[in-house]
Design a protein around this nucleic acid. Sequence first.
DNA 1: TATGAATGAGGGTTCATTCAT
DNA 2: TATGAATGAACCCTCATTCAT
Lengths: 208, 208, 208, 208
Amino acid sequence: MQPGAAADEPERTFIETARRAQIAAAAIDTIAELGYAGASFARISERVGISRGLISYHFADKDDLMRQVVHQAAEEAISYIRPRVLAESTGPGMLRAYIESNLAFMRDHRNNVIAMIEIARSAEGRRSYHDDTAVVNAVRALEHALSGFQTAGQFRPDFDPHAMAIAIRAAIEAASPLLASDPEFDIDSYSRQIVAIFDLATRADDTP
Amino acid sequence: MQPGAAADEPERTFIETARRAQIAAAAIDTIAELGYAGASFARISERVGISRGLISYHFADKDDLMRQVVHQAAEEAISYIRPRVLAESTGPGMLRAYIESNLAFMRDHRNNVIAMIEIARSAEGRRSYHDDTAVVNAVRALEHALSGFQTAGQFRPDFDPHAMAIAIRAAIEAASPLLASDPEFDIDSYSRQIVAIFDLATRADDTP
Amino acid sequence: MQPGAAADEPERTFIETARRAQIAAAAIDTIAELGYAGASFARISERVGISRGLISYHFADKDDLMRQVVHQAAEEAISYIRPRVLAESTGPGMLRAYIESNLAFMRDHRNNVIAMIEIARSAEGRRSYHDDTAVVNAVRALEHALSGFQTAGQFRPDFDPHAMAIAIRAAIEAASPLLASDPEFDIDSYSRQIVAIFDLATRADDTP
Amino acid sequence: MQPGAAADEPERTFIETARRAQIAAAAIDTIAELGYAGASFARISERVGISRGLISYHFADKDDLMRQVVHQAAEEAISYIRPRVLAESTGPGMLRAYIESNLAFMRDHRNNVIAMIEIARSAEGRRSYHDDTAVVNAVRALEHALSGFQTAGQFRPDFDPHAMAIAIRAAIEAASPLLASDPEFDIDSYSRQIVAIFDLATRADDTP
DNA sequence: TATGAATGAGGGTTCATTCAT
DNA sequence: TATGAATGAACCCTCATTCAT
């Protein structure tokens, strides 16, 4: 495999790549505004100012578009979150960084996150992407990290990492609809609260 | 306003009420199985064994049906959960009872819960019901209770009841898709874990 | 199985049956005029004076409509041709009656025949119906009859009934496009010629 | 009119001529495999390995391409069949050579023949080419030859050359779909049968 | 009270064709 | 000479909804 290129990704023109990204971006905004079901080709193309047919020209079918949306949205999120988490060395530090960077990214890229969640939750999304989905992967990775630090004695030994990971992800994702609908919702304050909650919930007995 | 009738509820014959309930029940199962977007009048009526037109006859439009679904699903849930919560006298006791009864109800009435959540999350749902939504109400009621016991000194004083309520609801609701898709998911074990997490997260300093 | 009713045919209203027949009839005429590929729901519905959606309401999908078309067209043809063939007792007599009644039916119901042939020949038709197709069945039945009379000594023994049946059917079906496009084409004269050709081609040596 | 050029044939560069032939050849194979309706520019260009636009560049429109297909396919067929027919001097000999060479060519160049027939039978084909069509011309030429030998007393005098020509062409063309779909179909055996049939059908009384 | 016939809008997708490069 | 971007019309199909019966 060549470095920097996926195995079976078709070669694409510069313009094609740009258009795909542009259309996917419009799809993200449309999904964020109208939901997965409301994101028809007509609505998306209208937002970009192109014809409906052009979306079909650039994407094999709707699945293909949605895959690109998830990929695009997730990539940005991961490249924001990962370094901030890895900069920490302790379990509690990483957990705090994980929650904070997730919610900070959500604050600044609300639509990306909403779209990811919306696709992962939609019936078609669950059927088609499932394991691809950033959301599913996020739970897995988080669970794995929790488990590691737990073994290392940095977290209390008697919680189930799987359940804990689900609860943490759920708390993070719960911010997304509030951000959209509740103008008084203060996500930074919310972030501090969630950090505190799960710090208490994971803390080892001897933690001061 | 007529006596004995809510503000704008039209009076309904016995048969009408029964049909509405029957159709709403079928809608609940359909939504649970196929998602909100998959719950067309055709699919719902097919499940009941009636004509498509009859749904339109009994409900003003799809929104009206979905309001009934939410109402019906919530009522059952509330009548299960409320007494179990009120049976407790302490804050931690009520919180535990709240989480446990919510998840127990979900275990035994999965479709009801899935439908509620699915509607609340769908774009149309958010737009149309919003304050009606059981989910939103659930957060409000929970927040209010947390706040009361916090003032009474039964919970640690330095958490934000709003954020805490959101996190608790999120953890509860997160169980729903897992219940549907992950056959290895053990909701009773999950329930104990969530109880422990939020017990630690809300515990007052002097709690033994 | 109840007499006079097929095993799994859904029960249909009087109106539904009538509409299905009417739409299928319009489909037949449309196919005859514009070919299989030209027979879109839009064109067919326009001919009937109904909305496009109504066709989808009465037929599960395009295949369903085409099955009805073939069925409807074939039934009429068979009920015309069969008694005329069975009225004959000798091989040559039946062969003559077969050719004559086929072409006479074609003369009076040109569109029915064109539609059957068009569907049988279209790529989708071949894939979907194939053995259902009246055309295929016609060849089989004819071959079987030829074979029987050949064994009985009423036809010359040294021809292959399969090849003969194909040639006869081909000569019959060849009249269809001519009927449509060549105003000078005289189908009755053509009928007599074809009868003569295949009489000579099948005649036993001792035939006077 | 320019010297050395047919009435309305535009002059073409060597490359242009080659490309047109290459594209037409791909169209022939595509039609044979997927039918006339399935032979879209996308599928054809994919087979050649060129862009869709290039077909539109070399051909005025789809009709233009199909005319080239018919022309190209017919030319090969004619150059195969004609000398074999002309090598015979008697009527029956030529008729036998005609049928045999037609079916032999079909056996060895199935796609060419399928494409010709498919186009001639398609609704667009009938409308657009008609007199151009090799099939139509084939009937005419055959009819003329039959008529000539009939006048010369080599065939029985009482058949209509037009009807006979149609029946012969129909029997020949009927082999094409069988060749494609019926793996047990033996075209050489079929050829002998058809020769025998039409020999008997055309034979003059005193033929031994 | 309930049905089934009917509509019209909107869904994704395929197509031949045009045009700037 | 050839490409690939782009269009707009047409395709079948599903939907919520209306209405006469």
